[in-house]
Write a protein that binds this DNA or RNA. Structure first.
Length: 447
RNA sequence: UCCUCAGUAGCUCAAUGGCAGAGCAUCCGGCUGUUAACCGGAGGGUUGUAGGUUCGAGUCCUACCUGAGGAGCCA
């Protein structure tokens, strides 16, 4: 017998235990909790796929087995053999009549597992993030995150997009240096990327339809439930795309992600406590409003007392403004054509009203705010040079970027979707810190 | 960077300026269907740090440290 089995019984997982009703199986995992009632023990096991309660009756097992379970400590690693039995009292529908237990490593009671099945504060949990991940809710969130990432990649792969990875180390600031993490690159100043967009504009000119999926770094001292200093973005970029094409693409992507999660991760959404009826409404078409419309809505909201400050045309939408706008719809709302002055230098002006940029922000419902930001990119060489100078950006660093407008420039555009914000919305979480295994935030670099 | 709030047992929290406590966790004992099990008992404290006011400070004052929520900025 090797070290990973204790019986001849087939190894299975808690998630698949239903296929083995009435059979004896082997489960490999950890002790989640233990309840005792004299000569009856109720150990709850977890194995990463779910939870199952075991039953150990003193008169049904050897004294060695009974005593091994009786004193067992939380999160001790165990290999358990037992018979699967359907039971209406069990939350998962099945229980395990334990016949055999092998303890791989017993957690010392002198230094017990710190996270008990009781309440804990955020700071304590974040300090123990490496262990917090073992709790059923956190594991469920990570499974939803993985599903969203898989679905996003599948969405683009099946539509003829090519994955092109932009660099993470970049030579110069794209949009100003204040938000970048500096890195020493062989005694030269480099920065961690804050967006792969400029680079995938180049790959889009080579391959037509491309996307990137990777980490992004922002050194902003933001301290809110929507911000991480290190987060993941999926960014499509499409040659010959117009703003309307981009809105169609964003709408299709978001709808697909939600549908996939409802199809494949419904049980996890229920563990998390998500009201899935709100997600079931997410399907095209999404409402599309102009920035002008948004300003009107915000001013009406202010008149009704629902928005604190009166919003004036020309400013960027603040977080409370986005929350109000998104709360007016049951689906994500796409706000397009902002004033060019509040947006990035590379956005294409609206030919009918050059003071506007051909851009779109997608605001998730239920107050989640912006999850996508995108635009049609500036195609004219001369105008782009003018904008770079107006923004006091180092022209030499953008020489390669300007080349894209010199050699066969075409209308094109793309957008970026923040994975963590999308996960937070789909899971209905209070804070993005739970959407990534090890969040990096202003005051959090450990563990 | 600014605004607000909070730091008391391993954890979650009480304590009118007057003896520093409870639940959970840990240890000991009890219980054959428990569901954050329950019942009885035990151990566990430099009240974030440094000053100050006071007969007396966990409590009031000042500074600092740490964290949380929000603003700005963004995805």
């Amino acid at each position: 017998m090797d070290s990973t089995t204790t019986t001849q019984a087939p190894i299975t997982t808690i998630a698949e235990v239903g296929r083995h009703e009435g059979e004896t199986v082997t489960l490999r995992g950890w002790l989640y909790n233990l309840r005792e009632s004299g000569k009856l023990l109720f150990p709850i096991f977890r194995d990463g796929s779910g939870l199952i309660q075991g039953v150990v009756a003193k008169n049904a097992v050897s004294p060695e087995i009974f005593d091994a379970v009786k004193g067992l400590t939380q999160e001790s690693s165990v290999i358990v053999g037992g018979k699967v039995r359907a039971d209406k009292r069990a939350p998962g529908g099945y229980e395990l009549d334990v016949g055999n237990v092998q303890v791989l490593q017993r957690v010392s009671e002198a230094d017990p597992y710190p996270i008990t099945p009781k309440e804990h504060g955020v700071d304590f949990l974040m300090e123990h993030r490496h262990l917090w991940l073992r709790s059923p809710r956190q594991a469920a969130i990570l499974r939803v995150r993985a599903e969203i990432i898989k679905a996003a990649r599948g969405f683009f792969d099946e539509r003829g997009f090519t994955l092109t990875d932009p660099p993470i180390l970049t030579p110069a600031a794209c949009e100003g240096t204040t938000t970048l993490f500096p890195v020493d690159y062989f005694e030269e100043q480099a920065y961690l990327t804050q967006s792969g967009q400029l680079y995938i504009e180049a790959t889009a000119m080579a391959l037509g339809k491309v996307y990137s999926f990777g980490p992004t770094f922002r050194a902003e001292k933001s301290k809110t439930r929507r911000h991480l200093t290190e987060f993941w973005m999926v960014e499509p970029e499409v040659a010959y795309a117009t703003l309307d094409d981009l809105m169609d693409l964003a709408e299709g992507l978001i709808s697909f992600l939600v549908k996939r999660c409802l199809e494949r991760r419904r049980a996890d959404l229920e563990i998390i406590g998500r009201d899935v009826s709100k997600l079931e409404k997410i399907a095209p078409p999404f409402p599309r409003i102009t920035y002008d419309d948004a300003v009107k809505m915000l001013q009406e909201g202010h008149a009704k007392g629902a928005v604190e400050n009166r919003f004036e045309w020309g400013g960027d939408l603040g977080s409370p403004d986005e929350t109000y706008l998104s709360s007016q719809f049951e689906k994500p709302v796409m706000v397009h054509r902002y004033p060019a002055t509040v947006k990035a230098f590379y956005m294409e002006p609206d030919p009918r009203r050059p003071e506007l940029a051909l851009c779109v922000d997608v605001l998730a419902p239920e107050g989640y705010g912006e999850i996508i930001g995108g635009s049609q990119r500036m195609a004219s060489y001369d105008l782009l040079v003018k904008r770079i100078r107006e923004h006091n950006l180092p022209e030499s660093a953008f020489k390669w970027y300007l080349d894209l407008r010199k050699y066969g420039s075409v209308p094109h555009g793309g957008f970026g979707m923040g994975i963590e914000r999308a996960v937070a919305w789909i899971c209905g979480l209070e804070h993005v810190r739970e959407t990534i295994p090890f969040p990096r935030m202003l005051h959090r670099l450990y563990p």
